[in-house]
Design a protein around this nucleic acid. Structure first.
Lengths: 221, 221, 221, 221
DNA sequence: GATGAATGAGGCTTCATTCAT
DNA sequence: CATGAATGAAGCCTCATTCAT
């Protein structure tokens, strides 16, 4: 067998390579479902069809497992968003709207929203994880949004505002929506329609940012 | 009997009336600091200077202790807010601003913000507590805000918007600010200036709600 | 007020005398309902409308309380039975039947059966209580039954049998009935009709003891 | 590697297949010795030479542990008895006698009698366990004895009696003997000779059941 | 590499008993 | 006499982590 034929690895060996991904998928599911502290490694292993000990072959401990989940699933989405924004050529209002809706589509609507929720919920008890997440995810996403706002201000679309705080104002409803979905809504309490909510929010924020006020194009009642 | 005996320390002190409040104070501190699941009742007892068993003289179990904390500390603030809103005679814009700032002052700035954070963080794992909190706190506070928005719409100050979603949009930044304070900020990561943030938010939201657009009175950069 | 008028004690003082009896009544109820170990002194106190501490004014500890219950409620019934048997003038078969049925009426059907059950159930874990109960109750009741059997043998009604073991054979069904009532029957499992059961038993035992066999007077099917 | 290393004691020993049985044996010992409620799982573990947590690898909780003890040790004996009775060809009097004596030999004389005692003693406080035991053990053993009585009545050996109550009358002395052994006798109070007692009982019951009365063959005094 | 048995610290809750008032 | 707040040991159960095989 020629050494070059890397694609015909025997089955068990390909499986070997797949292991970490299977484990991370299982871990994601459970972290999202139950949170960090309440997720038992037994369950992660069981869910991945592996023994508990095997988990420790691939990840030093619970914390490292979680970090790996974040790296595997969130960081890639961020990179994609960075590219998108850099290349966008329309108005900043459109860009912002697309960004928010895309964010919801790629993260909010998927399991990944659970990670955002989890970090807001538990970073206080796990400072190391918090630091890691802030560096890898939050600061990068902040930069992204601030860049969009500055673009809008620079070309006169948006009023000149304090971008670093506006960033958080803009981000807040999406975060709250994610948290709601994984807290009260998951107990059957007060479900929220994400599209309606986001439209309402985008309408308000668009009006709020507008340099030259214009009537909203659609009735939102 | 010699006067010296007076120094004998009793094995415990009778504090019948004060005890529940002391315990609730200790419980509040720890729930806020560590969350619901991670708070150990031993620690609550120790923090209140009593033994583990004493806690159970006053509260049936962890859940009831928590509920009592909420009743003692949050429900009263809500009642106050309801009265305030009912009696307010100024513009709705002013009312909304006062409400938000008062909310921050009474809750956001105090330990109580930790309860809001805790509930968003853990209600998914404790549905009974979630139901209780939603009934006692959330639904009442929702009603409050919706009433304010309707007041503004009715008298022509605000655009006609979907109040039930707008409610959440308005609430979101305050909630996120509370959560941030008890998550990343508590690890020394990216502190946020609440006044600046809230001003930025109020400026945006005021603009966003306005029926007849007016230029913002102050530059916020 | 003349010192002789003992019957007109002020109310609170008569109540003082009643206390121990009220406590013993409450204790009886709970010991019977839940057994010795599972009875909480809190509940006894509450059931008697008294504080926990008061219990300790009258009884040194749980064990002494229990002993007092036995003395108050069982020992007197025994004395009554002893008298009855001494004075009975009919046949021994009648005597035995009356004794068994009377035993069921005075003890089996009442709460007191619970004490018998309790002792069989828990004496292994409380040897001191067991010793006390054996001395005060069991050995005396054994003597009673043996005397009845010997009377029957002496006058030719009963076959000559080993009275000390027959004693236990005779006693066994009544004890089992008492235990059943307080164990499986109390969970709704297989209720037993005491009259039918006792009749069946008396029929069998009468036949079994008879010196000159005679057909049973009633069909028991 | 030097041979000396062989002496290193492992922190634990792998005993996958043996463990459950060792645990059940330890549990049986302690349940019998102390009863259900008074048996601490720590002690069971210690008695089996494992840590507390290990118990929970094999049994979900105390109740399941107990059920497993019953299944392992009692249910098998019952099956054996069922077969024996089905195949027996002698007289019903002999069958009954053999059954009773065999019951004593297989259960009464062994630790297993402690389970019977325990259930009579504690089923009132543990209804779920009671239900389980009644289904798995009591109802089956009742059926067995009733079948024997009906056999004797059918072929004219026994008088026609109420079999369902006679069943309990017959069973009572054996149960009482078992209970006695684990209650008063275990405190050194009034030991009972099982053989003498059972003979006395069988003599009485045989006479009591007989269709055509016959003189007892032996003097039992 | 993979397994999964074993550990043991730690969390919630109960209850007989004590003792200052 | 009465009270009832307080104690603290003890019991059940969980779970991250280790390690012989």
């Amino acid at each position: 067998m020629p050494a070059l034929d890397l694609k015909t690895k025997p089955r068990w060996e390909r499986r070997k390579d797949a292991r970490p991904h299977e484990l991370l998928a299982a871990a994601l599911d459970l972290f999202v479902q139950r949170g960090y502290a309440a997720t038992r490694l037994d369950d992660v292993a069981a869910c991945a069809g592996v023994s508990k000990g095997t988990l420790y072959l691939y990840f030093e401990n619970k914390e490292e497992l979680f970090k790996a989940v974040v790296r595997e699933h969130l960081v890639s989405v961020l990179a994609e968003a960075e590219t998108y924004i850099e290349q966008f050529t329309g108005t900043s209002t459109e860009l912002l709207r697309n960004f928010i809706l895309g964010w919801w589509e790629r993260i909010g609507e998927t399991k990944l929203s659970g990670i955002t929720k989890l970090m807001m919920a538990e970073s206080g008890n796990f400072p190391d994880v918090a630091r890691f997440y802030h560096e890898e995810v939050i600061s990068r996403s902040n930069a992204l949004i601030i860049r969009m706002l500055e673009r809008g201000i620079r070309n006169g679309e948006f009023r000149p505002i304090d971008t670093s705080h506006a960033n958080l104002v803009i981000v807040a409803p999406v975060i709250v929506l994610m948290m709601w979905k994984h807290s009260f809504a998951s107990c059957g309490l007060q479900a929220i329609s994400a599209p309606d909510y986001l439209n309402c929010f985008l309408d308000l924020i668009t009006h709020g940012l507008q340099a030259t006020p214009a009537p909203s194009s659609t009735s939102l009642v």
